[in-house]
Amino acid sequence: MRVSVITFPGSNCDHDAMEAFETRGHHVSQIWHKDTDLQSPDLVILPGGFSYGDYLRCGSIAKFSPIMNEVIGYANRGGMVLGICNGFQILTESGLLPGTLMMNKSLQFICQHQYIRVESADSPYTFGLDKGMALDIPIAHKEGNYFTDADGLKALQDSDRIVFRYCDRDGNVTPDANPNGAVDNIAGICSENRRVLGMMPHPERAASSHVVSQDGLFIIKAIENYFNSR
């Protein structure tokens, strides 16, 4: 696969994402936000970090970076875009995904291991995974409290676009397992065509034998299997 990882000023998980895919043997390009060429990717990643220092609102300035015109065009043509953490915030601010990531209910920056449940296998990012399986994927954010109004939530539920929910170790989706106050325990959602995914947890931080969890590899391998099945 050809993977293009976008670096904004303030991105800090770009190299983690690059390494996670390079290690799997993929051709990875790092794209500076002022570039206008996505370099013919099969997958674009908007990585985590603090683009533009989170000024105004997280992700709100990044949407005006020159490369974002290309990313939006690419997504609208059916391209695959994965937004992780700050990347998820950029996707909602850019209008590629609905809703908003608000400040955590606790007002705290939360950095911890977190279980998330696969709620839909109908996405390139969960292709072939068992619905209901719990993955241990770290979170690290202060603005990860997903919000959409009642109509927006119903639309997501009715169209099976909630891909991941926060859960406990056994896969139970409970208020106690919700780290940040996200509505309906939402940890990740996809676009109508299912090819744009935004998620707060960091699969690229759980993809190496050097770290505690390797569950991020389930997601990376799902993407590979989806790609190879086409």
Binding site: L56, S60, T148
Partner: peptide, 8 residues
């Protein structure tokens, strides 16, 4: 376009 997020 920028200062307010119409969702919230």
């Amino acid at each position: 376009k920028l200062l307010a997020n119409p969702n919230t």
